[in-house]
Each structure stands twice: as C-alpha cells, then as structure tokens.
C-alpha cells in the first residue's frame, strides 16, 4: 500500500508538475486585497502535493518500534534532517 501511494505520488509529480508550474506563473509581486486569494492559492499545497500525508505514518521511530515489537512486524522508516512530515 505504501509503495503504491509513493508510486502514485511520484507519477503525479512527474506528470503534473510542469503543467502546474506553467499554470501558476503570475507577476503580481505586491499583496493586495484584490490578489489575496490568488497568492493564498498559489502558496497553499494542492491535494496531490499532500498525498504522502495520507499515509498513516507513526510520527516517531520509537512509536513504530513499540508497535512493531507488539505485532512482530518490520518497520519502514523514512528519516531526514528535520522531520519528513514537517520542516525538512
């Protein structure tokens, strides 16, 4: 399941990103009431950008160790400098 989600995200990123980049280009450098929604929507992530967050990650390695020990299962750990689900 994890792999399928990762693969789906990768395909979406590969196919959609160039299109999304082109569609998002705009020139308004100042924030005004008139372009507020445009800037907000430009910055906020699209649903496909958040696909990886739909996976029910344990947010700490230790929680995963506790669960895996209890269930006698292996752990898949994604580890980064900065938390992969937050500021990485």
């Amino acid at each position: 399941m994890t792999f399928l989600k990762t693969l789906t995200l990768t395909l979406i990123v590969t196919i959609c990103l160039p299109v999304a980049f082109a569609a998002d280009e705009f020139q308004e450098k100042e924030l005004t009431e008139a372009n507020y929604a445009k800037w907000r929507d430009h910055v906020l992530p699209r649903n496909w950008e958040l696909s990886y967050r739909k996976i029910p990650w344990q947010t700490s390695f230790w929680d995963a160790v506790i669960e895996a020990q209890a269930k006698d299962k292996p752990i898949l750990l994604w580890s980064m400098n900065g938390h992969p689900l937050c500021n990485t």
Binding site: Q58, S60, F61, W62, A64, L76, L77, W78, P84
Partner: peptide, 22 residues
C-alpha cells in the same frame, strides 16, 4: 511505517533509546 527526523538520533553523544537503536 514511521517518519522521523534523524538530527538528534544520529548524534553520537545522544544516549536516548531510540537513538541507540537508530
């Protein structure tokens, strides 16, 4: 499945249990 930062865990001086395992 778990996602976690490795900054703390990878420090050799860190003796937290998760870091020793990591």
């Amino acid at each position: 499945m778990a996602a976690d930062a490795c900054d703390r865990m990878q420090r050799k001086s860190c003796q937290d249990e998760d870091a020793l395992l990591f």
